[in-house]
Amino acid sequence: MTTRWLTPKEQRAWRAYIAATHLVEDALDRQLQQDAGMPHLYYSILANLSESPGRQLRMTDLAERTKITRSRLTYAVTRLAKDGLVRREDCRWDKRGSVAALTDEGMAVLERTAPGHVGRVRAALFDHLTEEQVGQLEEICAGITRAMETEGSRPATDDVPWRRRSAPPPCG
């Protein structure tokens, strides 16, 4: 099999993408650590729960929405539960599953932190784009997501993080 090396234009685009995503994620992590004492991933978990009916989601659905492995989600939810921001409950409609539920304290943290987070997202990303570029960014990212989540017309199996078996993250 012959390697299809990146063209110079593709290499520039790839490096620009990596630099931008790392810088945006770092800016969001720093803002959320300062304002709420949590990383961006934990904020995303709280935000996803807040937007769900009853402020709760099955753990497997939450892993899919946050695009992380189930073991990484379990670790994060355990930490958030320790801080009183979420509860982990047995799933009433599926005895094999469990549910993460946003507590009132978690909702209060989210409401207190959201204005600073949105301001940082805007300053790090959207203030630098035209309306047309915002539409293009959405289209590009949605296309990449669709391609990564499917293989042709059938769902990917182990290629997406929430279906992948992985070791739990190290403690620290």
Rank of each mutant, 00 (worst) to 15 (best):
T2D: 07
R4Y: 04
L6Y: 08
K9N: 07
Q11M: 07
R12D: 09
R12L: 13
R15D: 13
A19N: 04
V24K: 01
Q31S: 05
L32Q: 00
L32G: 00
H40Q: 11
Y42I: 01
S44P: 04
A47E: 13
L49A: 00
E51A: 10
E51L: 10
P53M: 08
P53D: 10
R55C: 05
Q56Y: 01
M59I: 07
T60V: 13
D61H: 10
L62R: 04
E64K: 12
R70A: 09
L73S: 04
T74A: 11
R79M: 03
A81M: 05
K82Q: 12
D83T: 05
L85P: 03
C91Y: 06
C91I: 07
R92M: 03
W93N: 14
K95V: 04
S98Q: 08
S98H: 06
A100V: 00
A100T: 01
T103L: 06
G106M: 02
L110W: 08
A114C: 07
A114R: 05
P115K: 02
V118W: 09
R120N: 02
R122K: 09
A124E: 03
D127I: 09
D127K: 11
L129E: 11
V134H: 14
V134Y: 11
I140D: 15
I144A: 12
S153I: 11
T157E: 14
D158S: 12
D158V: 12
